[in-house]
């Protein structure tokens, strides 16, 4: 099964950007990751089972590309996450606080938390996307949640 890039861009672009941003912490890098991810979809001859399969593949590619960006020696001159956050408009102070706290988590916990809470993936699906064992995902999810709870207190239920 194949879907047009146009259709996928409409349904997945924001998700890919958010996933890439949660790793890169830089909007321009995340834009590049999204673009490269769609180019990779456009050029791959891979066959997909259904839309969910395509979506999971796109997320995995975006996550890998974003990790590669963070490891690249010659990363672009970037504005700090604090400066970038000043350009964002949050609905509530609590939302801003949560965003900032997530951005301070170590990368390996941040991406698992993001895929679980933003993309609604199960532990098993996250394990498949990140090529980790389910127990490893559970540990990262648990530690990430604990870190959020420690900072956010009553603003985070740990549910």
């Amino acid at each position: 099964m194949r879907l047009s890039v146009q259709k996928l861009a409409e349904s997945c672009q924001s998700s890919l950007f958010a996933a890439a941003f949660s790793i890169c912490q830089n909007a321009q890098d995340a834009e590049d990751v999204v673009q490269d991810t769609f180019v990779q979809y456009y050029t791959t001859k891979k066959e997909f089972e259904d839309e969910q399969h395509i979506r999971a593949w796109l997320i995995r590619v975006a996550v890998n590309k974003a990790k590669n960006v963070t490891r690249t020696f010659w990363r672009r001159n970037r504005i700090s996450i604090e400066d970038y956050m000043e350009t964002l408009v949050f609905e509530t102070p609590e939302a801003e606080n949560l965003f900032e706290t997530v951005m301070q988590l170590p990368e390996k916990y941040r991406i698992v938390i993001h895929l679980y809470y933003y993309e609604d993936y199960t532990v098993g699906e996250i394990a498949g996307i990140l090529k980790l064992s389910e127990s490893n995902v559970k540990i990262r999810l648990s530690r990430g949640r604990a870190m959020l709870k420690e900072v956010l207190k009553e603003e985070w239920n740990n549910d």
Partner: peptide, 8 residues
Amino acid sequence: AFSALPSS
């Protein structure tokens, strides 16, 4: 919280 991020 993450809805504050702009779409690319």
